[in-house]
């Protein structure tokens, strides 16, 4: 059975003098442990789709099922990571990474230790007592990753988490996030505008078409690329061929628009 299932999901936003159909008729399912990327031209409703899956926004019509249950509100099963770290500047890193546990009423000595261990695994052990503004962009995004993982969600929603970083940091963090997610056997959905990033991180890539967003095509990434960590995958001979393929599809969409 699918872990996450979207059935004919549509979302329309209303305002006083207009209505905006963000996404139309989206159906797909994700297996447990799968890594899915969603790409598409800007404004195609990628982030809306992620907000819907997170339960922060409810669909106008259609259903989203997580583990067989319909999503009505944010659940502890899902974790959300944003474009920028959005660490709370008035809290220390330790307080930041445990705020999810605290909010859920789950902050015990055991869970706190687990969060700190995670922080250590991501190389931030020495920074627990520091404040976000004392850390570099890459370190902050790693702390945000720990914050998301600390509550033990099964489904991770990543909303362009690398887009605000410099290229080198971005490549390193891709590897780190990839291996952390694989190690913890999490299911993940990544929204990105970077074709390369989508190709090297995921098992399947969903390409959305422009307003209203609907599924244009789904690419299944071959085993040989899936098995590699992102940095190695970027250097694989098959990478370029796939890149061209997705690129052409995206171009044809833009021409239509």
């Amino acid at each position: 059975m699918a872990f996450l299932e979207l059935k004919n999901v549509e979302k329309t936003f209303f305002s006083k003098d207009s209505l905006n159909e963000a996404i139309r008729n989206i159906s797909f399912s994700v297996m447990e442990g799968e890594f899915i990327s969603i790409i598409g031209p800007s404004g195609c409703g990628k982030t809306t789709l992620l907000s819907l899956i997170s339960g922060l926004v409810l669909p106008t019509t259609g259903k989203i099922l997580l583990d067989g249950k319909e999503i009505q509100r944010p659940s502890p099963e899902t974790g959300y990571m944003l474009q920028q770290d959005y660490l709370f500047p008035w809290l220390t890193i330790e307080e930041n990474i445990t705020i999810g546990l605290k909010t859920m009423g789950n902050l015990t000595e055991t869970t706190r230790k687990r969060a700190l261990l995670l922080l250590k695994q991501l190389g931030l052990a020495d920074h627990a007592a520091k404040y976000p503004n004392q850390l570099s962009g890459g370190m902050r995004q790693r702390a945000a990753l720990v914050r998301m993982l600390s509550t033990g969600p099964k489904l991770l929603l990543l909303d362009e988490p690398f887009s605000a970083l410099d290229y080198q940091t971005k490549l390193k963090l891709e590897d780190l996030v990839f291996s952390t997610i694989k190690e913890h056997k999490k299911t993940a959905i990544l929204v990105t505008h970077d074709i390369g990033e989508a190709l090297v991180m995921s098992d399947r890539v969903i390409l959305l078409s422009h307003s209203p967003g609907s599924i244009q095509r789904i690419f299944s990434i071959p085993e040989e690329l899936k098995a590699l960590i992102p940095f190695a995958a970027r250097n694989h001979s098959a990478y370029n061929k796939w890149f061209q393929e997705v690129w052409k599809e995206l171009e044809s969409l833009e021409r239509k628009a």
Partner: peptide, 8 residues
Amino acid sequence: KVIRSFGA
């Protein structure tokens, strides 16, 4: 959004 995603 961050705090709501934790079900706040």
